[in-house]
Nucleic acid binder design. Structure first.
Lengths: 194, 194
DNA sequence: CGCCAGCTAGAGCGATCTATCTAGATTATG
DNA sequence: CATAATCTAGATAGATCGCTCTAGCTGGCG
C-alpha cells in the first residue's frame, strides 16, 4: 500500500481543488480519485467538506513550502536565480499537466475569500508562510529585513498572477516574461557584489 | 425601470461569480439577485449556465476595459501614475465591499481553465484586451512596442496576484506594496525625461 | 479465543442543482 | 384592433449535492 487513506484523501482533494476549484469538486469525486471508501471521509474529517478543504490547503501549502526551501537551497546564495527557477518550475508543471497544475491554493482562495472564514484563513496562513520563506532568503542575501518582507509580497503576487494568466491563456509566456522582469527588479535591489 | 432584464442578469452574474466563483453560484441565486424571472434566463441565454457565464465574463471585461481607459486618460502622459491609480482603485473597492470586489475574471478563470473551453476562452480574451490596453499606453509613453507588450503582461500579472493575496489576507498591504514596486520598475523603463 | 478500537462499506435523506416545458403576459407592428 | 414576436412565470424532471446513519470488517491485545 502506498499511503494511508487520510493522506490519499488530502492529496486527491488538493489536486482536484486546484484544477476545478472547491465548489466544483464533489466529495464523491474525491473519494473516487483517492481510492478511499465514502465512510472514511467522515471518519477522518468529521467537519465535512470544509474540514477536508482546510486540511487539504494546509497540506499542500506545507508541501510547497518544502519545495520552496529545496529550490532555494539548491542555487545557494543566488536568490535571484532561485526565484527564476521557481517560475520555471511552474512553467514545466503547467505544460506537463496540460494546464492543470497551477497554484494549489489560489483557486480555492479566490472562491472562498468571501464565503468561508475557516477556509480563507487556511489559505491566508499558507500564503503568509510562503511569503516568510521568500523574505528570509532575500534578507540573507543582504536586503534589509523590512524591504525583504515587501519584496517577498511582490514576488509572490507576481508569481500568482502570472500563473493565472498562463493557465487562462494556455501559454507559458506570462510566466516567463514576469520571471524576467521580477528577476531584474530583485537584482537591482541586491547590495552591490564584492 | 433601470436596465433591461438581460443586462441585470449579466451584472448580477458577474458580481456573484467574482465573490463566490462560477460553480459556487446557482442560477436561482442569479435570477434572485438580478430581480429577473427564471424563465427569462433560458430565453436570453439558451446555452444555459455556460452561455451566461461566458457573456458575463465578456460583459464585465469590457466594462473594466473602459475603466482602464478612463483612468489612463485622466493622469495624461503619466503612465506610471495611472498604473498606481489602478492598484489603489482596487484597494478602495476591496475595502468598500468588505473584500468581495476583487477581479471579476480571475476567480472564474482559475475555476474553468481546465473544465470549460468556452469559458476559459472568454476569460483569456478579456485578459488579452486588458493587456493590449496597458501595452498601448506604455508604448505611447515612449517604451518600445515589444518591451511595452512584455511589461503589460508583467503589470497585469502583478495586479492580479496582489488582488489574490489582499483578498485572502483581508489586508490591502499586498496591493499597496506591489503597486510601489511595479511603479518603480516602470519608472526605470521609461525614457529619461527631458 | 473474546473484546474493543479503528476503519470500511454503502444505503438513503433532504436539499439543491441545471435544464425543460407549457402557458400566460406584454410589447411591437401591420 | 389584430397578430406575431418577445418576454415572463413557475411547475417539474432528473441528477447530484453534502451529510447521516447503521452494520460489518479488521487487527492488536489480554
Amino acid at each position: 500500500m502506498a499511503k494511508d487513506t487520510r493522506t490519499r484523501l488530502l492529496e486527491a482533494s488538493a489536486q482536484l481543488f486546484r484544477e476545478q476549484g472547491y465548489s466544483g469538486t464533489g466529495l464523491k469525486q474525491i473519494t473516487a480519485a483517492g481510492g478511499a471508501p465514502w465512510g472514511s471521509l467522515y471518519h477522518f474529517f468529521p467537519g465535512g467538506k470544509e474540514h477536508l478543504g482546510a486540511e487539504a490547503v494546509a497540506h499542500s501549502g506545507a508541501r510547497y513550502l518544502k519545495l520552496f526551501d529545496r529550490v532555494f537551497a539548491q542555487a545557494d546564495a543566488e536568490v535571484v536565480r532561485s526565484v527564476r527557477d521557481f517560475f520555471h518550475l511552474s512553467v514545466d508543471a503547467l505544460e506537463r499537466s496540460g494546464w492543470g497544475d497551477g497554484c494549489p491554493i489560489a483557486t480555492v482562495a479566490l472562491e472562498v475569500a468571501s464565503t468561508s472564514e475557516p477556509l480563507r484563513h487556511a489559505c491566508a496562513e499558507v500564503f503568509a508562510a510562503w511569503e516568510a520563506s521568500i523574505a528570509r532568503r532575500l534578507a540573507s542575501a543582504g536586503i534589509a529585513e523590512d524591504r525583504a518582507a515587501e519584496l517577498a509580497v511582490y514576488v509572490l503576487a507576481a508569481f500568482e498572477g502570472a500563473i493565472v494568466l498562463s493557465r487562462t491563456a494556455h501559454d507559458t509566456r506570462p510566466l516567463r516574461v514576469t520571471a524576467d522582469v521580477v528577476a531584474a527588479t530583485l537584482t537591482a535591489e541586491l547590495p552591490a557584489q564584492r
